[in-house]
Design a protein around this nucleic acid. Structure first.
Lengths: 185, 185
DNA sequence: CGTTCACATGTCAGTAGTGACAGGTGGAAG
DNA sequence: CTTCCACCTGTCACTACTGACATGTGAACG
């Protein structure tokens, strides 16, 4: 079965397994998701994904469930894959994000002229204002409900928004995630 | 001079130039900084740094100013290097952080059992509490001053703290940065 | 019936980053 | 005077990731 070696923390693996946990899909299908909702969280290119699917299949975490027209291979997650996914999600701690270009800039901020520094901070402030507006909108769109998933989703969203470099699009997909969670509930 | 090709956004280059802008240093010296104050912002290994210094020298952005005992090569930044650094710092926009393992987890949060989800969120909340304590400590250590650099530093620190995954050590070096900025002023 | 486009898979060369290994030197402490 | 450690430079094999290129097919539209 498995002769493939993975590094300690490799999350393309888990992103792929996670998407397949929603249901069987082809590499092409997954690629759409990586290009859309997952784009701001964990982007991946074709060459990476097809290679990863091969590795996951070698390791027995996914299998080719069906072959369709145009060479389509439909992958589905195995029990072992599901176990690995749950383990990653539940038992291991998230690695802190390293390499923040923004913080690197802060480190060398003293090199800027006062005018440049002011312009820089003005930029940051504008981005923040936009983000806050996004948060308010989200709050309007959500109706209070007591279901577990929605409560967890709300909290998760809050932390995601508070602790990460913000982008308007992230807020959008977060709302989509909450909607989906609510429907499945 | 330059035959080396860089990708659009490569910040080890700028981290190195930035450190050399504080004064000449050997690869070994720089490595200490990358292992200490810069570790949580932009870590780098030996093999990467020595290679990078070679590339920067080829590109004419740094030069070997002096050779010391034990094969020590003291690099210093050139005018061109300084120009490149200022350009990066002032003219280009910071690339948003991609690949957040935490947000990836949020994406698949629905797969957890309620118990696991609760434990996960409890963990996050604890980290946040610790972070807030760190911020309060920083505020105590800073005295209000009107100098430009300190004001800019304060604002930058605030944003850095608000928008990035937090770690206690980051707060520590941020305080050091502010102290240094205040002295130089 | 032909053209076009979304579907679908892959390879390849190159950069970025990691961890382990290799090797050599000067100064200080015992 | 020897031994040890901090100093100092580098290579190598490997994984992760990127962007470009290559190739082929089924269905739908005119």
């Amino acid at each position: 079965m498995s002769t493939v070696k993975y590094a300690e923390v490799v999350s393309l693996k888990h992103a792929t397994l996670g998407l397949l946990s929603f249901g069987p899909a082809s590499g092409y299908d997954l690629l759409q998701t990586f290009g859309e909702s997952l784009a701001n969280v964990w982007p991946a290119t074709q060459s990476q994904l097809y290679g990863e699917l091969g590795k996951l299949a070698d390791a027995g975490l996914v299998t080719v469930a069906a072959e369709g027209p145009r060479g389509r291979k439909e992958y589905s997650i195995t029990d072992e894959g599901m176990a690995e996914l749950r383990h990653w999600l539940g038992e291991t701690k998230p690695a802190p994000t390293r390499r923040s270009e923004m913080l690197l800039r802060v480190f060398f901020l003293g090199l800027l002229t006062p005018e440049q520094a002011e312009a820089y901070l003005h930029d940051r402030a504008a981005a923040a204002t936009e983000m806050r507006a996004g948060m308010l909108e989200i709050d309007k769109q959500l109706e209070p409900q007591d279901g577990d998933l929605v409560v967890y989703g709300r909290l998760a969203l809050e932390w995601a928004l508070r602790y990460s470099v913000m982008q308007r699009e992230w807020a959008d997909w977060a709302v989509e995630e909450l909607r989906r969670a609510r429907k499945e509930e």
